[in-house]
Design a protein around this nucleic acid. Structure first.
Lengths: 164, 164
DNA sequence: GCACGATGGTTGCGCACGCACATATTTCCC
DNA sequence: GGGAAATATGTGCGTGCGCAACCATCGTGC
């Protein structure tokens, strides 16, 4: 029973929802703060750099970037402007489609990412990873994946997908 | 094995971390949007009103409010200013300690909360609750509770706790 | 070839909110 | 009792970011 007769979500499920919010809040705030003070970088910045690193040629279109991360297209425009100003990425036009614009990781960006990676992974380890076994992590992946728009990662689902 | 030899967090645990961020993002964005358009209220507003409703006399000190929710004290000041302007809460000084200030839910606030509750619980139901059994929700509660600062709810832990 | 919708990207605007600091009050301790 | 330290709250400031609107470009059907 996850809802009462009146249609309220009650009990354990509501607790789970609240813990999810709280977990995200404390994790984001802590890790973002670490990354900020030690590398002058936000989690969103980091996320974008990682996405680029994983991509072919360290290069992605703006839209694809926003789909892979938690930002809308407009947010991505401004975030990438910042990264470009700091020399971590470069912009490059697309030869086959004059609308699209690529963001591509610079060598300097790779270095900065590697440096940030150390502290950020230490943070994830301390705040998150070390509290779960492999099986428990798999359980989390499976359960969280049921939420609409979470598992169907790069598709038209949620955050960056449509600017709704 | 949750980390490689170099100390990177790898594999399933990293997936779990990313899904947690994504889940929170899509849930917050969707539900906040619903609450916003149908009741002109954000999730933070809602959260504060619920906290007050659960409290004795529908009344809490500002600090306690921020501890129970995901906001810092300064954020709470401004949020409550908004709720006061809309007539959902009243401010009341404390007779025994002139520093503290109570926020207390008005009858109108109760009504607005009840109305918002309907749509919000419908949203939680659709986006979250209906995808989990009672046991699965309990698993989520237990696992998420291991993250430092999540389970020790109202204590000096995370978000509202200290303004660090 | 051209109008029309779809798509990629950017910008104006506004808001929520954290941080650092300031202020008022209380508590503690000598 | 008086001054230091702790506590409760509020304020100035900056920033991140979503939304709506806009412009440029591409594809499609005629």
């Amino acid at each position: 029973m996850t809802t009462s007769e009146q249609g309220w979500v009650v009990g354990t499920v509501l607790d789970a929802w609240q813990r999810l919010l709280r977990a995200n809040c404390v994790l984001m705030r802590t890790l973002d703060h670490e990354l900020q003070t030690e590398h002058g970088m936000t989690i969103s910045d980091y996320d974008v750099l990682v996405s680029l690193r994983e991509a072919d040629d360290h290069s992605l279109r703006m839209s694809d970037l926003s789909r892979r991360t938690l930002l809308t297209r407009s947010g991505m425009t401004r975030l990438v402007q910042g990264l470009e100003r700091d020399g971590l990425v470069e912009r490059r036009p697309c030869v086959s489609d004059a609308r699209v614009s690529f963001a591509v990781l610079t060598p300097g960006g790779v270095d900065r990412l590697d440096a940030a990676r150390r502290t950020h992974h230490a943070g994830i380890q301390r705040m998150f990873a070390e509290h779960f076994s492999e099986d428990e992590a798999a359980t989390l992946v499976e359960l969280l994946g049921r939420i609409p728009g979470v598992a169907d990662g790069s598709e038209t689902s949620c955050c960056g997908g449509g600017e709704l």
